[in-house]
């Protein structure tokens, strides 16, 4: 089991991404697919955060000496990505409520059959 100890956060993040992708492929429940898509997004964000992360680096706040600082670029960028992700998920959930009230189902397959009538 030595390889488990060697796993880094970025490896786990990629795993999370594909786990989310699997969920989006396999789940018929709309809420579960929305959750899966959220997990994919979080996986990608975590991976980006850990890009070029030297062991033991400190957060890039003003008092940190420059040589210990983690790369500030991913952190600045990922704030944007997190905000976008949250708003898209919120919109998906709002739309889901509309669809669920209108067609009375939370299942993609049944939903398709009930459209067009």
């Amino acid at each position: 089991m030595a390889f488990i100890n060697q796993l880094q956060i970025s490896d786990l993040a990629v795993g999370l991404f594909f786990l989310g992708l699997y969920g989006a492929m396999s789940q018929r429940n709309i809420i579960k697919t929305i959750m899966s898509v959220g997990i994919m997004d979080i996986g990608a964000i975590t991976f980006f955060m850990m890009a070029n992360y030297p062991e033991g680096a400190k957060p890039p706040i003003s008092s940190t000496p420059v040589e210990y600082m983690a790369d500030p670029v991913p952190q600045a960028l990922m704030i944007t990505a997190i905000v976008i992700g949250v708003s898209v998920i919120a919109m998906c959930l709002a739309m889901y409520m509309r669809v669920a009230y209108r067609y009375g189902t939370a299942d993609w397959k049944i939903l398709i059959r009930r459209l067009e009538k």
């Binding site: 991404f17 992708l21 898509v37 994919m40 997004d41 991976f47 980006f48 890009a51 070029n52 991913p74």
Partner: peptide
């Protein structure tokens, strides 16, 4: 959104 998650992971990889 799934497509954009792919893109984000790809950009992260490129940056790395």
């Amino acid at each position: 959104f799934i497509a954009m998650a792919f893109m984000l992971l790809g950009i992260g990889y490129l940056y790395r």
